[in-house]
């Protein structure tokens, strides 16, 4: 099983002086998996990503990347690429020149066509010959992703890659990451955008004050979580409200998570009770037009788990 892991970390610790940044971190990321890393600011996400990229050496624990034990040298194994704290770009170079200069570091084999293809994948063909000095954050993120892809990585490590992306940029990035994962590349990404993580990741790890408070599939996270609030928009709001009140395990919440359209009902429930309510609505001939969590399951779990960790410390 271990042979299929992109990352295997056991008991990783890292301190900066008196500050414990990582405190016994365990992490498994399978090949071809997109793994999300979530945590409050200062939880240790960037430090962990830095270790994966070979920017720092752990003070203790055991780390294997792509099946290779990581030693004390400041370097990641071949096949790892990515960025932390935003992509590093040189403003005096154009997008194409940035990629060409990086490509020339590794080999002469990456030709102009390969760079053009990467620029196309991340949607930057139109600005390929513009200096990156004037690039927006989203464009920089996409170019950073293209730069990381130059080496055809087997493990891609990205810190907040969704920052500053517009919907079109997000689509490009999601498409690229999805294709990479399908080809067997492991992707570890941190983000504060829960919708992005839910859309992309099969598993997530939640960090709080340097410790893992949850690691596993998103479905497991939802199952472990408490009741959530859901928006419910139906063809007959009054009848739907009556049915919701009568359904076991469903509580109608007035005033919470209100939306401008007053016909939207907010109900609080676990997933099984919610399933029951939907069945009853349909049997009653009420059309269900929208059913969505007010706060995403991941976000709710994140808030709950990180709050609990803060309190316990």
């Amino acid at each position: 099983m271990d042979g299929l892991l992109g990352i295997r970390a056991r008991g990783i610790t890292k301190c900066f002086g008196d500050v414990v940044a990582l405190d016994g971190i365990d992490l498994d990321v399978a090949q071809g998996q997109i793994h999300g890393l979530v945590g409050r600011n200062g939880a240790g996400k960037t430090t962990l990503l830095g270790l994966l990229l070979g920017l720092a050496v752990a003070d203790g624990g055991h780390l294997e990347i792509l099946g290779t034990p990581v030693g004390r040298a400041l370097a990641a194994p071949e096949g790892v690429a990515g960025f932390v704290d935003g992509p590093g770009l040189y403003p005096s170079l154009t997008a194409r020149q940035n990629l060409a200069a990086l490509a020339a570091l590794r080999s002469n084999s990456v030709r102009a066509a390969g760079i053009d293809d990467l620029l196309d994948q991340v949607g930057l063909t139109d600005v390929a010959d513009d200096r990156t000095r004037g690039f927006s954050l989203g464009m920089r993120q996409r170019l950073g992703l293209a730069a990381a892809l130059l080496t055809k990585p087997r493990l891609l490590v990205l810190d907040e890659p969704a920052n500053g992306l517009d919907p079109a940029g997000k689509r490009h990035v999601h498409g690229v990451l999805g294709r990479l994962a399908a080809q067997g590349t492991s992707v570890v990404l941190s983000s504060h955008r829960m919708d992005d993580l839910e859309a992309l990741c099969s598993e997530v790890t939640i960090l709080a004050t340097g410790r893992v408070v949850f690691s596993g599939p998103l479905s497991k996270l939802a199952a472990e979580n408490r009741e959530l609030d859901y928006w419910l928009l139906t063809s007959d709001p009054q009848a739907a409200r009556r049915l919701a009140v009568d359904t076991a395990g469903i509580r109608v919440v007035d005033g919470a998570g209100a939306r401008p359209d007053a016909e939207v009902l907010v109900v609080q429930a676990l997933v099984p009770a919610l399933d029951d309510l939907v069945v009853r609505l349909v049997h009653a001939g009420i059309g269900v037009r929208e059913l969505a969590p007010v706060v995403s399951p991941l976000e709710a779990a994140f808030l709950t788990l990180t709050d609990e960790q803060e309190v316990s410390r």
């Binding site: 055991h62 290779t68 030693g71 370097a75």
Partner: peptide, 16 residues
């Protein structure tokens, strides 16, 4: 505490 394994292979192929 587990010691970090020293392994020269980790360095990968460095840029000249």
């Amino acid at each position: 505490m587990t010691a970090i394994v020293a392994d020269a292979r980790v360095a990968g192929r460095r840029v000249s």
